[in-house]
Structures are given as structure tokens and as C-alpha cells.
Simulated scan of single mutants.
Amino acid sequence: MKRLAKWRLLPLFAVMALLAGCGEPFLSALKPAGEVAQMQYDLMLLSTAIMVGVIVVVTIIFIIVVTRFRRKNDNEIPKQVEGSHKLEMIWTIIPILLLLILAVPTVAATFKLADVSPMEKKGEDGKTEAVVVKVRANLYWWEFEYPNEEILTSQDLVVPTDEKVYFELKASDVKHSFWIPAVGGKMDTNTENVNKFWLEFDGKASDEAGSLFYGKCAELCGPSHALMDFKVKALPRDEFDQWVAAAKAVKEPKQAETAQAQAGQEVFNNSCIGCHAVTPANSTPEQARMGPNLTDFGNRSRVAGVLEHNEENIKKWLKDPEAIKPGNKMTGKYNLSDEEIDAVTEYLMGLKVQ
């Protein structure tokens, strides 16, 4: 009966295996949406084909040996083969050839992906021709700085499509890992050194909202590791330039328009602005970068990176951030009344970069 109970678990494992292969184009590493992702996918297919081929050949040989050379009866002893130079040569040379077939493209791809020389070439103005993004990982949110464009954002990464985008990765607290499954990559962000790599975003791959991809932290970093997401808006070059121009045009914090929003702005300036900047300038003081930059908060698709962007969820976050993201740095900093939360919510919803 115990063995029968164990066999009943097989359907459950089968369903879990099938679900593990499910995914959307903008979320799945098995549906590449860029040059890096395609290279990694091709290498994965090559290695899988080699492994499956080895398994098939070994299985066939095993079946042949078991059936052809089995002992027919108690009085018959199968032919004893002490050794074969030919077989020994075959099973030595074939693994070497398979290793070379896998190693050559892997090494070539590794060197190509490690080439970040364009981000090191700066002109007289100290800027590069390539798009460079400095990524800073924090518990549990992401900051994106554009040194050439002189702007700073959080949670939503905006990049041009169909061209190489270079990244500098660093962490401010503990080790994290930057990964956009559909586009490739996955590299650690450390506190003691800067890692660099590049990605290319395919403009043809998109979800129902447009060229939107999802990024994750791929290194266990604390109780809210699974909730450390960010969004990637991949725009055609002209639209990306328009976004940069609109962000650079924001010189001062946007003024609230309604009476309640004005009250919310006052509460924000007295309680929140010490950690959250509301201008995109990358000259933002370090003390105002303890929390995400909120310049374009009204344009975002998620609250705290995980909740649907609406007033109800903003109020939930402001009221009890620990219930949504355990271990976050905002927990316990503010004790706002319901009226203050309503006012701050309306103010935050009005923070937009057109």
C-alpha cells in the first residue's frame, strides 16, 4: 500500500513538469527576444542535442548488448572479450569530438558577450556613443542611471530597441543578480566591484502592452527576493529620444494641482523626500537615493514592483509595506493617518513624465 501511495504522486509531478515549461514571450528564457538571448538559447539547444544523442546511442548499445550477448541457458557461457583497441579508440575519440563541438561556440560566445569596449570609449565631452545604464540593486528595488543622458530612474528600465545597451552593475547592500529572462544576461551585482555586460532588445518581441519585458533578481537576497522585480520598456530609437528629452525637461518637482494633492505634497515633503527624489537628475544626493526615484511614478505599471498600479494598492503599500514586501527598508519609517495616505496617494498619481 505504501508503494501504491508513492505511485499516486506521479501525476502530480507530471503536471508540475508541464507547468514548468509554460511562459509568456516576454517572460520566458525559451523564447529569446534579443541577440544575447538567441546566442544563449542556441548554445542550450546544442548542448541538449549532444546530451540527448549520447543518451540515445548508449541506450541502443545497452539494449543490443543485453539481448544479443545474454546468457541463453545455464550450460552456455557467452563469448568472453578481453579487450578491443578499436572500441577503446572510438569511446575515447568521440567524447573529445563532442567536447570540441560544444566548447568552440561556447568560448566564442563568451568572448563576444564579454566585449564591453564601446562603453569605455568616451569623447571629449566624457560621454559614449553607446547607450550606457548604471544599475544599482537595493533591498528590494532597482535604480537605473543614464550617465550620458544625465537622468536617473527607478523600477522601470527604458531602453532603445535593436541596438546594444551596455550595463554597469553594482549593489548597495547585499549581493543581487540582474536578469531579464527573455533578453538574456543574468549577472551578479556586488557591493565590492562593478560588473559589465551588454544586451540587445528585439523590437519585434512584445507583450500585449507593447515592447515590455520583465526583469528579476536571480540571487537569493532576503525575505522579499521573489518580489524584487522591475519592468523594461523597450522603445524604438526615436521614442526613446523623446522619453529622454521629456525626462530631462523635468527640472523641479511637479506641483500638485488639486487641494488634496497639494496636501499630499506637503506631507511628502515633510516625511518622504529625504529618501525619495522626485526629479530625474542623476546629481540626486546619495541620501535621497535610499528609496526609489518617484519622478514618473504616475506612469508606472506596478506599485512596489509587484502590485497593479492603482490608488487602492498605493494606499495598501503606504499603510503597511511590510505586509507586501517583508524586510523592506520603508517599514516603520512613517506612521501616516488615513487622510494623509489619501492625500499622498493623489499626489503620487500625478507624478508623470509626459
Rank of each mutant, 00 (worst) to 15 (best):
I96E: 09
K86V: 15
S271H: 09
A259Q: 13
P326A: 09
E311R: 14
D202E: 10
E88D: 14
V250F: 03
T92Y: 08
V54Q: 05
A245Q: 13
L139N: 13
M16S: 12
T189N: 11
D202L: 14
P280G: 00
M89F: 09
G23P: 03
Q155T: 11
L318W: 00
A37P: 05
Y214G: 05
D188C: 01
A5G: 13
T48D: 11
E120V: 04
N190W: 13
V66I: 12
F230I: 07
S47W: 15
E168M: 12
T48F: 11
I55N: 08
A103F: 09
A5Y: 12
W243F: 15
M187N: 08
G53H: 04
D162L: 05
S301M: 15
L169T: 02
I50V: 15
L102I: 12
M1C: 12
R289A: 10
F213G: 01
T191P: 01
E257T: 07
A323S: 13
K164N: 15
T258K: 03
N310F: 09
K196I: 10
A37Y: 06
D241P: 01
F26N: 15
D202V: 10
Q40K: 06
I324E: 06
K127T: 12
W179L: 12
K72Y: 04
D156K: 05
F13M: 07
T110V: 14
R237F: 09
V135D: 00
L97K: 09
K79Y: 13
K122N: 07
P105N: 04
D173S: 09
P253A: 02
D320G: 08
L220D: 14
L46C: 02
N148L: 06
P160W: 03
S206Y: 04
A5K: 14
D162A: 06
E76I: 10
S84L: 13
A109S: 10
V36W: 02
E168F: 07
Y166Q: 04
C275M: 01
P160V: 09
C221R: 11
K112I: 10
W317R: 08
G291F: 06
T279C: 00
D229K: 13
L46E: 01
N73E: 13
I94V: 15
W317Y: 12
K333S: 12
E346Q: 11
